[in-house]
Design a protein around this nucleic acid. Structure first.
Lengths: 150, 150
DNA sequence: GCAATTAGTTAGCATAGCTAACTATATTCC
DNA sequence: GGAATATAGTTAGCTATGCTAACTAATTGC
């Protein structure tokens, strides 16, 4: 019984959860964009930079994979980061590849942006109870796992 | 003890949760965009259309507020929706305002797109264990509340 | 050493965000 | 009543981010 109809046979609770997740993701990013813009760096650049800062140097293709965008898109994102002095392109032994590294400035800016986001979120959480804060942390753990499975 | 320093005194768990939430929101939408593109309608248009379908007719300014974008941005989003025959602009008594309404086609397309997105997400959620599904449903309730407070 | 593969970039198109400046209509105030 | 002001949307122009197609450069394979 693995036929197509099963897709629609998911429990109503899951459907509702999925819908809320989707909508929340859209509006969460819209809100945070306001804070992120203070850094003068777009969301895609910020996200790519965060991979380099927290995950370390890697090639453009690897970064594109990590960010789930196509290489031309990542190429342009990196160009923006490079222009802003946040990332360096370095040659490797394999002449086709480049090694992308966050600069000191890039690392600093990322941490500042992260701090701003956390401040926004912390303010939102201030109105919630402690147990709800705990639940949020749980959700945050769960989310990357879910995203991987989409 | 409600001084500014407290903002930076957020627990490491919250800091990490905020960062994961932000990152997960970005990647969630990137994945779902693939499904959304089947409808030939962008995420901003889809989200705006959904407000009209589920929330009913309203003015451009109200829709911009609901979507947390500026009026010129919403004006262009609506133009795209109108061009695609998914939304109608109607005159009102107040000659400055327009009333935006989803067309029958818009309502149909929205439901189809919503079904695809939710299916993709729900399938990912279905791959989780039962207890995690329960937790997620609970947490999905929490998200819109948090987003409102950001 | 030449063909095929791989990594990135460039070019061109669309969506989506913004501010500034404009038009048109309502409202306010004398 | 009419001028000044306020409000609602649109237009124009910039940036950022997505994509595919087509290109360059380098490596690998035979």
């Amino acid at each position: 019984m693995t036929d197509v109809k099963q897709k629609s046979g998911v429990s109503p609770e899951l459907l509702e959860a999925a819908d809320k997740l989707h909508s929340a993701a859209i509006h969460l990013l819209r809100r945070l964009r306001v804070r992120d813009r203070e850094s003068g760096i777009g969301p895609a650049q910020l996200s790519a930079l965060s991979v380099l800062v927290f995950g370390g140097s890697r090639s453009l293709g690897e970064l594109a994979d990590a960010e789930q965008v196509r290489p031309p898109t990542m190429s342009r994102i990196v160009s923006g980061l490079e222009r802003a002095g946040l990332v360096k392109r370095e040659a490797t032994e394999d002449g086709r590849r480049v090694r992308l590294m966050a600069t000191a400035k890039g690392t600093k800016i990322l941490w500042e942006g992260r701090k701003r986001r956390v401040e926004s979120l912390a303010n939102a959480l201030a109105a919630l109870g402690a147990s709800e804060q705990g639940r949020l942390s749980e959700l945050a753990e769960l989310l990357p796992e879910i995203v991987r499975k989409i």
